[in-house]
Design a protein around this nucleic acid. Sequence first.
DNA 1: CTTGCTCCCGACCGATCGGTCGGGTACCGT
DNA 2: ACGGTACCCGACCGATCGGTCGGGAGCAAG
Lengths: 207, 207
Amino acid sequence: MADPNTRDKILDVGEVLFARRGFAGVGMREVADRVGLGKSSLFHHFRSKVQLYLAVLERVLARIQERVAPALKDTGDPCERLDRYLDAFIDALAEHPTTARLLLRGIFEDDDFDAGTFPEHHVEHRLEVILSDARRLIEAGVEAGAFRDVSPPHMMQTLIGATVYHFASGEFGEGLLGRPLLSAEAVARRKDELKALLHNGLWVKAQ
Amino acid sequence: MADPNTRDKILDVGEVLFARRGFAGVGMREVADRVGLGKSSLFHHFRSKVQLYLAVLERVLARIQERVAPALKDTGDPCERLDRYLDAFIDALAEHPTTARLLLRGIFEDDDFDAGTFPEHHVEHRLEVILSDARRLIEAGVEAGAFRDVSPPHMMQTLIGATVYHFASGEFGEGLLGRPLLSAEAVARRKDELKALLHNGLWVKAQ
DNA sequence: CTTGCTCCCGACCGATCGGTCGGGTACCGT
DNA sequence: ACGGTACCCGACCGATCGGTCGGGAGCAAG
């Protein structure tokens, strides 16, 4: 992290700003100022604003995939591997507070088919690939009878939602919880919740 | 809905566009075109773009509150009232597909303290008021022993996350589920899930 | 007919947007 | 000493931004 090159510094600044204000809300001038460069110098490292934005998203997605990959190479029953996968996924979101919001914003922009500014469904496709592994683990667990009455797609939707929202909820979530979202305590709790959600058979209707 | 006045038409268009592209991503020109007006005519109904945006958010928040209010006036034990409250909250999000994204974007913008373009923590304060009722119901349920081992703040965070994300996940979520997010089936399932989440004692660690 | 109000419009404003251009400087291998 | 390349800069470009202004059409009250 010490003495990062200029390109990485631009990506760092872009990541923070895009997560805060979204693609349209950030000007190249502001990015350049924060990096300590002239605006025109940015275009030496990235051909356009869109390219910079895509590079930021790409780095974020790669970081998640990198975190999650080891959990899949493990041997062992699908149930334990899924636990490790979920831990890794949460760690990936907790690592940088910007990640969750960038993912959500990426999903939003992917759906904005009117404006052809971004490659079609870029983030969504990448996310599908990353999360398809988790889905396969859940399906394997269901077949093995480890989870009661679980529908993998709905389970995925809930797991993603509860997790991504938590780290994207910002000051609103912190006010609710009364502690920082990234505190070791809150992160550990989130991990426990996801596992309990799986193992307790969420979708067994309360009698 | 028949023959709405011009002001409401502007709000309708603004709601759709702001949900799609966010505040910074929408131009007054585009809004005016979709309504069928000249750009300058918009400023006859709203003093500025910010005022239009706040009016859109305000209408969305009011709609949620309106939906949720009857569930609170009910008598009966807190457990049943909470069930009705959650149903109403989900109905409010399902009513307009734009709602969830506008809420998330509002939370994001509230945290962007750098840009003083919006009143401080406007959406977050309004949401806190709306959701504080649910929190009180959960606390009452915990005291009555209806829910095992539940921490109200964490429960709230998970309930909000799973619900809001579901309706904000757009084409990504639909691809995962294989059906429209707003289909009666998916909405009903979401209601069942939230209730099961409460009654099954999510936070009892799996043994 | 006049006055005034509501609603809408095209023309226009200064500011800012993403992006280009020519030139400057420092370090490179030769 | 040389040309080349990587990096950075200020000046500038056309387009678009939010917003203003003067005025026109329609309608109601006097």
